[in-house]
Computed example of a mutant assay.
Amino acid sequence: MQVNDCVAVLTGAGSGIGRALAVALAQRGCHLALADVNAAALAQTAEQVRAEGVRVSEHPLDVANRASVAALPQAVMAQHGQVDLLINNAGVALGGNFDQVKTEDFDWLMAINFDAVVCMTRAFLPLLKQRQAARIVNVSSLFGLITPAGQTAYCASKFAVRGFSNALRLELQGGPVGVTVVHPGGVATAIATSARPPAGVDEAEHARKLKQAEKLLRMPPPRAAEIILNGIERDKPRVVVGNDARILSWLERLMPVNYWRLLPGIATQKTN
C-alpha cells in the first residue's frame, strides 16, 4: 500500500506513537483526519503536520463514546471525501493486580483499548471497502503477546485487539481491505508513566514501579512510527516493534507456559 495522496484516520494523535505516525504519514504525502481526546495536544500535532503541505482535519474525540465514534465518518468524509487507512492507536494503561483494580477502572480501560477499536472499525469499514486498496491498522502491544503480573486489564485488552484483528483479516481476505496488528515493545511514550493507579495502593510503591517501567521504554516514537509504516506499505499482517518485542515474542512461542521464568534475568540485563 502506498500512502501518498491517501487519507488516514488516526486516533490517539495527540502524543507518543500517534503524533509520530501523523508526522511520518504527512512526510509521505498522506492527508490526515486526526483524533484525540486532548484537543490542545491534537491541535499541536495538526500544526506540526500541516507544515508538510497535506490536508489535515482535527477531530476532538473520546473513542469510548460510541455516539461520537458513529458520527466521525460523516465528519471525515465532509473534509476529505474518502478514507483509505484507519489506524486505531488510542490507548490507556492501568496498574495493579486484578484484585486491586476496581470494576469501573477495568471497564474504563476495556472501553478505550478494545471496544473503541471494534466501534471505529465498524464505523469506517463501509468506507474502506469502497477503495481499491485500504487497510485497518490496530495497535496492540508487547503485552498482547506476553502476560506480566500486574497487567491483567491491559493484557486482556491487547490480547483482544490481537484476536479481533487476526479473525477480521481472515474474514476480509480477498477484498480490498487488509488488516495489520502492531505489537510495540518499549517505546518512549507516556502511556506507562501516566497509567491510572489502582485504588488503595501505596503511592511510593506505585511511583517505584513506574520508574522501573520507564527504564524499559527506550525506542524513540519516530523510529517506532517508521517501522509501523514500513509494515503498512509492505502489507504485513503483523508488525512487531523493537528487539525486546521480537525476542520476547519468540521466547513466548518457544516456552508458552514457562517463559516468564527467564524474564527477571532478561530485565536485569536490560536495565544494567
Results as ranks from 00 to 15, higher is better:
residue 199 A to F: 11
residue 155 C to R: 03
residue 168 L to Q: 10
residue 236 K to P: 02
residue 172 L to G: 12
residue 120 M to D: 03
residue 173 Q to H: 12
residue 201 V to S: 10
residue 263 L to C: 15
residue 199 A to R: 13
residue 254 L to Q: 13
residue 252 E to W: 03
residue 193 T to G: 11
residue 256 P to Q: 07
residue 201 V to K: 12
residue 20 A to T: 10
residue 114 F to K: 10
residue 13 A to S: 09
residue 66 R to S: 11
residue 12 G to P: 09
residue 27 Q to N: 06
residue 88 N to H: 01
residue 25 L to H: 05
residue 162 R to P: 02
residue 239 V to T: 10
residue 227 I to R: 13
residue 2 Q to L: 11
residue 260 W to L: 08
residue 118 V to I: 13
residue 270 K to W: 14
residue 200 G to V: 06
residue 256 P to W: 09
residue 220 P to N: 05
residue 72 L to M: 12
residue 272 N to S: 15
residue 263 L to P: 11
residue 210 L to V: 14
residue 46 A to R: 05
residue 79 Q to M: 09
residue 247 I to S: 12
residue 192 A to V: 13
residue 243 N to R: 13
residue 69 V to L: 08
residue 18 G to T: 00
residue 245 A to P: 05
residue 263 L to R: 15
residue 51 A to F: 00
residue 114 F to W: 12
residue 170 L to P: 04
residue 247 I to W: 14
residue 167 A to S: 15
residue 7 V to H: 03
residue 82 Q to T: 14
residue 134 A to D: 03
residue 42 L to Q: 08
residue 148 P to L: 00
residue 213 A to R: 11
residue 194 S to I: 00
residue 238 R to C: 08
residue 109 L to R: 08
residue 6 C to K: 15
residue 255 M to S: 09
residue 231 G to C: 04
residue 79 Q to S: 15
residue 135 R to Q: 15
residue 158 K to A: 04
residue 26 A to C: 08
residue 58 E to F: 06
residue 12 G to L: 13
residue 67 A to H: 11
residue 240 V to I: 15
residue 132 Q to P: 14
residue 189 T to S: 02
residue 64 A to Y: 04
residue 217 L to S: 05
residue 245 A to Q: 06
residue 25 L to D: 06
residue 57 S to E: 02
residue 54 V to K: 01
residue 150 G to F: 04
residue 50 R to L: 00
residue 173 Q to L: 11
residue 120 M to V: 07
residue 165 S to N: 08
residue 193 T to W: 00
residue 122 R to Y: 08
residue 152 T to Y: 02
residue 59 H to T: 11
residue 272 N to A: 10
residue 94 L to P: 02
residue 214 E to F: 11
residue 83 V to A: 06
residue 177 V to E: 04
residue 247 I to N: 10
residue 193 T to V: 12
residue 112 I to M: 01
residue 126 P to V: 08
residue 84 D to R: 07
residue 11 T to K: 07
residue 246 R to S: 07
residue 127 L to Q: 15
residue 160 A to M: 10
residue 192 A to Q: 13
residue 231 G to P: 11
residue 74 Q to F: 06
residue 248 L to C: 05
residue 237 P to V: 04
residue 12 G to A: 08
residue 78 A to N: 12
residue 82 Q to I: 00
residue 24 A to W: 00
residue 166 N to T: 11
residue 121 T to F: 01
residue 15 S to M: 05
residue 142 L to A: 07
residue 156 A to E: 01
residue 200 G to I: 08
residue 122 R to E: 13
residue 88 N to L: 02
residue 11 T to Y: 05
residue 222 P to M: 00
residue 95 G to A: 07
residue 231 G to F: 04
residue 44 Q to N: 13
residue 272 N to M: 15
residue 185 G to Y: 05
residue 225 A to C: 07
residue 205 E to Q: 14
residue 14 G to H: 04
residue 107 D to T: 12
residue 102 K to T: 14
residue 5 D to V: 00
residue 149 A to Q: 14
residue 50 R to T: 09
residue 236 K to N: 04
residue 25 L to G: 13
residue 172 L to R: 14
residue 248 L to Q: 10
residue 141 S to R: 02
residue 17 I to V: 13
residue 226 E to M: 08
residue 222 P to I: 07
residue 54 V to N: 02
residue 102 K to P: 10
residue 73 P to I: 09
residue 41 A to C: 05
residue 185 G to W: 00
residue 239 V to Q: 06
residue 231 G to I: 01
residue 131 R to P: 11
residue 212 Q to T: 09
residue 200 G to F: 00
residue 244 D to C: 07
